[in-house]
Simulated assay, not measured.
Amino acid sequence: MLPTPKNEETEIPWWLLVAGGLAVFFLVRIAADDLYSQLLATLSRGIGITLFVTIVAFGSACGLGLLLALGSLSRHPVLRHAARFYIEIVRGLPILVLLLYVAFVIAPAGVVAVNWVLEQIGAEAIRTRDFPLLWRAILALSIGYSAFIAEVFRAGLQAVDEGQVEAAKALGLNGWQRFRFIVFPQAFRMILPPLGNDFIAMIKDSSLVSVLGVMDITQLGKVTAAGNFRYFETYNVVAFLYLLMTVTLSLLLRRLEQRLARRPG
């Protein structure tokens, strides 16, 4: 029989103490070393782009993922099979391949389609380069993660006790009211941990936008290292910045999960 683990709230987080110690050591090293200080100042400019790409893409992916989850649970065969087709196809593509496909195939094709519409109404055509690479990257991440998030939503919605839905029907609540007040609040508690994991994963996968030349942390690191040939120090700072964001978010999400678990109902 496996030993019963201690309560997470009382157990000493040794991993966090070690990680905190390493972070303090690295910050002291940065403060004492001019090269590290310059690298941190340079690469920190990419934090805004990284967070912007992550937040916008994740928000879009959640909205699309929820629609896909509802579609995959629909009683209408066309909606159900269309949603499953999208989910299975997109989940089978590597994010990097999807990023390149959206940036250099779907985006130009979309511009051609828009220009055809503009031509019909006599408006001025747009150019492919008018569709910024930043937004192509956001579109690709939104499409890629929406398929995974759809499965998270679907599992959470299906986990809600059917008896509560029947009770809501007996009280006269319509479909939207049942979803808004009964189903989704309970499903949200169950999907929060995997949803948080997907958000943290997207922060890391946002580094892939550097292949399009988007000036995020990774791209700034590549450009800086190519100029000063100090690869060790440069990528130390790149790794430090990503770890700072991901570990901090992991701790915040864990605290939120604990608060929701203690809340009654």
Rank of each mutant, 00 (worst) to 15 (best):
Met1Trp: 12
Pro3Cys: 03
Asn7Cys: 03
Glu8Ser: 13
Glu8His: 03
Thr10Val: 11
Pro13Gly: 10
Trp14Ile: 14
Leu17Tyr: 15
Val18Arg: 01
Gly20Asn: 06
Gly20Val: 02
Gly21Lys: 10
Ala23Val: 07
Phe25Val: 04
Phe26Arg: 02
Leu27Asn: 01
Ile30Pro: 03
Ile30Ser: 09
Ala31Tyr: 05
Ala32Phe: 06
Ser44Cys: 07
Ser44Arg: 00
Thr50His: 03
Leu51Phe: 10
Phe52Met: 11
Thr54Asn: 11
Val56Thr: 13
Ala57Ser: 15
Ala61Pro: 07
Gly63Ala: 14
Gly63Gln: 06
Gly65Lys: 14
Leu66Asp: 00
His76Ser: 11
Arg80Ser: 13
His81Asp: 12
Ala82Val: 11
Ala83Cys: 12
Arg84Cys: 00
Ile87Thr: 11
Ile87Cys: 08
Glu88Arg: 10
Arg91His: 04
Gly92Tyr: 07
Gly92Leu: 07
Leu93Pro: 00
Leu96Ser: 01
Val97Ile: 15
Leu100Ala: 08
Leu100Asn: 00
Tyr101Leu: 13
Val102Met: 08
Ala103Cys: 07
Phe104Asp: 01
Ile106Leu: 15
Ala107Asn: 04
Ala109Asp: 05
Val114Arg: 12
Trp116Leu: 12
Leu118Arg: 15
Leu118Ile: 10
Ile121Gly: 02
Gly122Asp: 14
Arg127Pro: 00
Arg127Gln: 14
Arg129Asn: 14
Asp130Tyr: 04
Pro132Gly: 07
Leu133Thr: 09
Trp135Val: 08
Ile138Cys: 02
Ile143Trp: 13
Ser146Asn: 06
Phe148His: 13
Ile149Gly: 02
Ala150Met: 03
Glu151Gly: 08
Glu151Phe: 06
Val152Thr: 15
Arg154Trp: 01
Arg154Ala: 03
Ala155Phe: 00
Gly156Phe: 01
Asp161Val: 05
Glu162Leu: 11
Gly163Tyr: 09
Gln164Cys: 04
Val165Phe: 10
Lys169Phe: 01
Lys169Cys: 03
Ala170Phe: 09
Ala170Cys: 10
Ala170Gly: 10
Gly172Asp: 08
Asn174Lys: 12
Gly175Arg: 15
Gly175Thr: 13
Trp176Ile: 12
Phe181Ile: 00
Phe181Gly: 01
Val183Gln: 12
Pro185Trp: 04
Ala187Gly: 09
Phe188Gln: 11
Ile191Gln: 02
Leu192Gln: 04
Pro193Glu: 01
Phe199Val: 04
Ala201Ser: 15
Lys204Ile: 05
Asp205His: 14
Asp205Tyr: 15
Ser206Tyr: 09
Ser207Met: 05
Val209Asn: 07
Ser210Pro: 06
Val211Pro: 05
Met215Pro: 04
Thr218Cys: 05
Gln219Pro: 00
Leu220Gln: 11
Thr224Glu: 14
Ala225Thr: 11
Ala226Met: 09
Arg230Met: 09
Tyr231Thr: 15
Glu233Cys: 09
Glu233Thr: 08
Glu233Lys: 14
Glu233Gly: 09
Thr234Pro: 05
Asn236Glu: 15
Val237Lys: 03
Val237Glu: 05
Phe240Tyr: 11
Tyr242Thr: 04
Tyr242Leu: 04
Leu244Tyr: 05
Leu244Val: 12
Met245Asn: 02
Val247Tyr: 09
Leu249Asp: 09
Ser250Phe: 01
Leu251Gln: 13
Leu253Gln: 14
Leu253Tyr: 13
Arg254Leu: 11
Arg254Thr: 13
Arg254Ser: 13
Arg255Cys: 00
Glu257Asp: 14
Gln258Ser: 12
Gln258Asp: 07
Leu260Lys: 01
Ala261Gln: 15
Pro264Ser: 13
Gly265Pro: 07
